[in-house]
Amino acid sequence: MKHVVVPKDSIKDLLESLMTDYKIVAPVREGQTLVYKAVNQVDEVILNDEAAYKSPKEFLFPQTEQMMVFSKDGDIRITEDDTKTILFGVRSCDLEALKIMTAVFTQGKFIDTYFEKKLKNTVLIGFGCQSEKKGCFCGDRGLNKGYSEACDAFLTDNGDQYIVQIITEKGELLFGGFAQIDSQKAVSCESGGQALLEINSDESTLFNNVDWGRISEKCMGCGTCTYICPTCHCFVFKDVVEKGEAIRYKCWDSCMYPKFTMHASGHNPRASKKERYRQRILHKYLYVKQNFGYTACTGCGRCIRSCPVGMNIKSVVTEIMEGLK
């Protein structure tokens, strides 16, 4: 692996020079909060130790994505998007989350070509956290807050400069020109330890021996957690008919909504918040693990910070495992 040093003042010049070819998405201040947004001026970019309230997943998996336009005559126009994007300043929890998204959308029999294409056109630049924020538990999930390999290049704050680990060719293209340093001197780049927070049990035990009603009692089903979560990836197709044409959209769905998995017959297998909350926890900690080998929670702590009624996924999972012992 190659390490280079980028002085802090030249990072903005670098982004400025890339703006003609790429759409640059980086943390930007919006009111009180920090969000990932397409940047118009490099001065807007904020690289500090704060966490953005939403994950940047929407730039690979948009909240609503137009897929195609089709008409009665059988004419289908596939919507193409070739925008080259740089996702800048992504935390290691979000990068690990994208690994899970990539597995879900690009592995196996069915491939989401929209996601795949976006991923191909995106350069991921990671950025290390220095401190854990309130609610963060990436350590318990076996992540290193200061480093992740699931990107093209990773920045680490080092006083008046950034140390950049170049991981892929895409990263080399951006940072190749900077002064190389000895890898020995560079910051640690371990992948993190063992995950302590896991659910190790089978589905029927979890269904029958856990009091989901009590656990989900407080939840009011607002869905904020699923919208800001970096790994939540449930979606729904929606056709909007307009003037003889129809547009097909792929939109975020949320297991917290009453209409989630509602059948056309009117039957809903997840009729109450008890089943829906169970789905959320087990999807993260069991189903994705069964299918792809990852636990789909990276401990970013966003749902804990944003939950209006103080639901805490970490303590819920701990409680479940304690209860099953």
């Binding site: 309130k134 609610g135 009692e217 407080k218 702590g301 804990i304 910070r305 939950c307 209006p308 009624v309 103080g310 639901m311 805490n312 303590s315």
Partner: peptide
């Protein structure tokens, strides 16, 4: 009410 989580200062308590 009970003590809240993370940045929330109070949460409902049954």
């Amino acid at each position: 009410f009970a003590e809240g989580q993370a940045e929330m200062s109070a949460s409902p308590f049954f």
